[in-house]
Design a binder for these strands. Structure first.
Length: 416
DNA sequence: AATCAACGAAATCTGCAATC
DNA sequence: GATTGCAGATTTCGTTGATT
């Protein structure tokens, strides 16, 4: 007797076999479920064994659906291996997008801890070539357990998640809510690609801000969202809904969440393309190419890095000093000091604004060419550049190093 | 407000070469 | 041969920024 009861309770907690079956589907018009309004968006109520049903908004996109200049299903031609130069976590290389879930949560606030919970959990995933977005909605905080168990049926079939800032925000939050309800989060310890970080790596230099909305405009060329809900308003809109029961004002929140998922998938594809083949599918902006070149250089792919930097120079309209400094730094890392010196030399000859080429050439002259007189001249030039401009803390240090360097060089030349 | 990965700067280690 | 000083590599520490 006790055994049966225990089994049932465990099943409800998501540990038993009972929950492996599919949800029963309840039509939206079902009278007992319609008691609390939900936004007028396509969807249905889903319930897991013994739990009250929760509302799941459903959007389906055909194989050829495009969003931000890309066709989402093209992601299936890529794997996580594309992100090798941009993501240090080796598990990401194994990521298979047909088994991944794109996750984004709308929550009752930004603060962590038990006070914050997700009232709308958007999950994007591929079914065949088409892309589905399911949005699990909590009509009442008392419904959370049911929402998490329904979520489990969709998410549990995946072994990877793709998020935006989800390593810091969405995923830990979902973990906390699952622990609170003593439900095992599935997938447990998934492969996690957090697109914030590779995006920063690639686009920060050009765009400055790497908020998802900035990337949407600056990378995917989508128009700025018209009438979109600002994130800070979202918790308030949900609390109003809980008080008044009017679901209308939540419709734009569903829309916001749905678009965030589509943008996340499109951004993932765009970055995957650039990083897979920077020659055939290069970023169109010189600064993005420069960052991509740096990333390849950092993982030791010098040939690809050089090609990125050369192309970046070719399409750069403004002064390209920064890109050339990258090229020189790359040759130095390749231990091709002669070529590096040629590049620094050209920069110095043109009166480079940055001190780096002067300092690097001074090192080169002293330690490789053993031309102390030349090294001293370069160190002096570097000092002059240093003093000719506003001094930051860093400049102060570089200056001190240069004075030290110059003193040593004069000793070596026999000058007191 | 809480969190966390990435990045840059600073600190430390390693190996080489000059000097006495 | 021991000491010194450097550059480059590696490790550690602190800061930044994105999420609702």
């Amino acid at each position: 007797m006790l055994d049966v009861e225990l089994r049932e309770r465990l099943a409800r907690l998501g540990y038993g076999r009972a929950t492996t079956g599919t949800s029963r589907v309840i039509e939206t018009s079902s009278p007992d479920q319609a008691s609390r309004a939900v936004p007028r968006v396509p969807g249905q109520h889903r319930a897991v064994a013994g739990e009250p049903a929760c509302f799941v908004a459903e959007s389906r996109y055909a194989v050829d659906h495009d969003h931000g200049e890309v066709v989402l299903s093209d992601l299936l031609t890529h794997t996580g291996a594309a992100f090798r130069p941009l993501v240090p976590d080796p598990r990401v290389l194994e990521l298979d997008f047909s088994r991944a879930a794109f996750v984004d949560c709308e929550t009752t606030g930004l603060a962590g801890g038990t006070g914050t919970y997700a009232f709308l959990i958007g999950v994007g995933y591929f079914v065949g070539g088409s892309f589905h977005v399911d949005q699990f909605f909590m009509r009442d905080p008392g419904e959370e357990r049911g929402v998490l168990l329904a979520l489990r049926e969709t998410l549990g079939e995946r072994n990877a998640v793709v998020t935006f800032n989800g390593k810091s925000f969405d995923w830990p939050l979902l973990e906390t809510r699952h622990i609170y309800h003593r439900i095992r989060l599935a997938p447990d310890d998934p492969i996690h690609l957090d697109m914030l970080h590779p995006s920063r790596r690639l686009f920060k230099r050009r765009l400055g801000s790497c908020a998802l909305s900035s990337l949407e405009v600056g990378v995917l060329s989508l128009p700025a969202r018209n009438g979109d809900v600002p994130g800070w308003q979202i918790p308030g809109l949900y609390f109003d809904y809980l008080r008044r029961g009017d679901a209308g004002p939540l419709t734009p929140v569903f829309e916001h969440n749905r678009l965030d998922i589509l943008t996340l998938a499109a951004l993932t594809l765009k970055v995957a393309r650039h990083a897979t083949d920077p020659v055939a599918a290069p970023p169109e902006h010189a600064l993005d190419l420069m960052c991509l070149g740096r990333a390849f250089g950092d993982v030791g792919d010098f040939e690809i890095a050089l090609r990125c930097l050369e192309r970046a120079r070719a399409i750069m309209s403004e002064p390209d000093e920064e890109i050339r400094a990258c090229v020189a730094a790359l040759y130095k890392r390749m231990r091709n000091y002669a070529t590096a010196a040629d590049v620094w030399h050209a920069l110095v000859a043109e009166g480079a604004l940055s001190i780096e080429p002067y300092v690097e050439l001074a090192k080169h002259a002293e330690h490789r060419l053993r031309d102390y007189a030349r090294a001293a001249v370069l160190a002096e030039q570097a000092l002059a550049v240093c003093s000719s401009r506003a001094t930051t803390a860093r400049d102060g240090r570089v200056r001190a190093e240069l004075i030290h360097r110059l003193a040593r060089l004069r000793r070596r030349q026999g000058i007191a």
